[in-house]
Simulated assay, not measured.
Amino acid sequence: MKNAIFVLVVSAAVAVASGASARQADTLIGDARRQNGLEGEMSRLRQVSPGSAREGVCPLVRGASAEVNAYVAARLHQVAQQAGAPYAKRACEPNVVVLFSAEPDALIREAARSKRFNYSGVPTAAAEAFRSGADPVRWIHGGDVRSSAAGDARPHNALIVVDASKAQDVKVSALADYLALVSLADTRVRPAPMDSIMTLFDGRDGTPKTLTESDQAYLRSVHRAR
């Protein structure tokens, strides 16, 4: 199955939230100086199709502060290990790409205009929801998993865009767990449990702020048969 989903490039200058102070958003937006060189790094991805998560999860997290980028990538590694998902141990082509942006709509529009995101193999409804959605976190998965074995919710690869402004009031630890779940399982093919970190942005009191036991059992079941 063709695993292509996107070719990526991110502007070397990711917008910095104005009025930097102690607000959560200031930790979710990277210092523009730290983004120097990203253009060259991302342009490399345009030359090849992204790797397959079936061969080992290989994350690339960009756009937040260096500390947040590193934390999210480490948490993805930890959750993948706990779920029994394979994880790339050598140099690899990124297959789970997380991009933080203060202007996600502009990022996605520019990527579409310059043909840097390729939606080949993505269901039309999912691609449209990604392009025009307004959720704090938007994602698409590569490969038509619906043509795989029934109930197979393991993505071949994943592209996630985080609206840093809308996610500013969420703890980074909770956000990282949310990102891990949507990266490692296609919840549209196989819904997550009711008691789930997926309710993080529902705005209700008492919503989980970490992966629940049900979430962890769900991920283990998704990755059990490989």
Rank of each mutant, 00 (worst) to 15 (best):
L107N: 00
V97R: 12
A102S: 14
A111C: 04
A111G: 15
A83T: 04
Q82K: 10
P94D: 06
G84Y: 07
C92I: 08
D105K: 11
Y87E: 03
L99T: 11
F100S: 11
A106W: 08
A88V: 07
V79R: 03
V79F: 01
E93N: 11
P104I: 12
N95M: 05
N95T: 09
A102Q: 14
Y87N: 00
A111L: 13
A106T: 15
Q82I: 02
A106G: 13
A111E: 03
I108K: 00
P86R: 13
E93R: 15
A80T: 10
E93Y: 09
P86L: 12
P104N: 06
E93H: 09
P104S: 08
F100P: 13
G84Q: 02
R109I: 11
P86N: 05
V79E: 02
E93P: 01
E93F: 05
L99W: 04
P94V: 05
D105Q: 11
C92E: 05
Q78L: 09
L107S: 01
Y87G: 00
R90G: 03
F100H: 15
V98I: 15
Q82C: 00
A88F: 06
R90Y: 07
S101D: 14
E103M: 12
A111P: 02
V97C: 14
D105H: 08
V97E: 10
V96C: 08
V79N: 05
Q78H: 07
G84H: 07
L99Q: 06
Q82E: 13
C92V: 08
V98T: 15
V96M: 10
A106R: 15
P86F: 05
A111V: 01
A91E: 11
A91Q: 10
A111S: 09
N95W: 08
Q78W: 04
A88G: 14
A111D: 01
A80D: 12
F100V: 12
L107E: 02
A85M: 02
A102R: 13
Q82H: 03
P94M: 06
L107I: 10
A106F: 09
P94T: 05
N95F: 06
A102H: 10
E93K: 13
V97P: 07
A88R: 15
R90Q: 14
G84N: 05
V98L: 15
F100T: 11
L107M: 05
P94R: 06
A106S: 13
C92F: 06
A80N: 10
R109T: 14
C92N: 06
A85E: 03
F100R: 12
R109D: 15
E103P: 00
A91V: 08
L107D: 02
V98W: 10
N95P: 04
Q81C: 03
A102D: 12
C92H: 07
P94H: 05
R90P: 00
I108E: 03
Q78N: 05
